[in-house]
């Protein structure tokens, strides 16, 4: 039986190395300690942090940062970071992969909605009229004004998450 050649896309790995947190993927030796403690892996076979790291080591860009990537199922619980004996910090590698998916405009549309407020208003959640009313009813002081201009300066370029995002 002819052996299939394994191809590794090192250019993808070099790109990942340059994103904050991405470099640690190089330390993974596939021990699966992350899988044992991963709550997403416990509840679905679609998510497996060891497999994500294996695909990262192979440089499988489309599988990891394309539209059908499983990375968005990560619960962000940091159990893998806690347990990893190699200091891979799998969650941070996954976040670096998410940053790459955003750069390719392949992130889920819901991410745009969930992440746009902070850059626009300085707060992560929308301050709805219900929240304002409740603050009043509970006798809480009004919210302080946020210097949005400062935020815009330090964030520089506005960045879209998906093709449809403005």
């Amino acid at each position: 039986m002819a052996k299939e050649k394994i191809k590794v896309d090192f250019r993808f790995r070099e790109k990942l190395n340059k994103i904050q947190g991405g470099k640690h993927h190089n330390y993974c030796y596939q021990c699966s300690a992350c899988v044992a403690v991963c709550p997403a892996a416990r509840f679905t076979e679609e998510f497996n942090p060891r497999v994500i790291l294996l695909k990262t080591l192979l440089g499988m860009e489309e599988a990891l940062t394309g539209e059908d990537s499983p990375i968005w199922l990560c619960t962000n619980c940091y159990s893998c970071y806690e347990r990893c004996p190699q200091d891979v910090r799998p969650i941070e590698v996954i976040i670096a992969l998410k940053n790459m998916a955003v750069q390719r405009q392949k992130a889920p549309a819901s991410l745009a909605k969930l992440s746009e407020n902070i850059a626009q208003t300085g707060v992560s959640v929308t301050v709805t009229s219900a929240v304002s009313r409740r603050r009043q009813e509970l006798g809480l002081p009004p919210l302080k004004t946020i210097p949005i201009d400062e935020l815009k300066e330090i964030l520089e370029d506005p960045q879209s998450v998906t093709k449809d995002d403005k």
Binding site: I19, Q20, G21, N76, I95, A96, K98, N99, V102, A107, L111, L114, S115, I118, A119, S124, Q159, V161
Partner: peptide, 8 residues
């Protein structure tokens, strides 16, 4: 979680 996923 979300803003970090967008741009660390």
């Amino acid at each position: 979680i979300y803003f970090k996923a967008r741009d660390k």
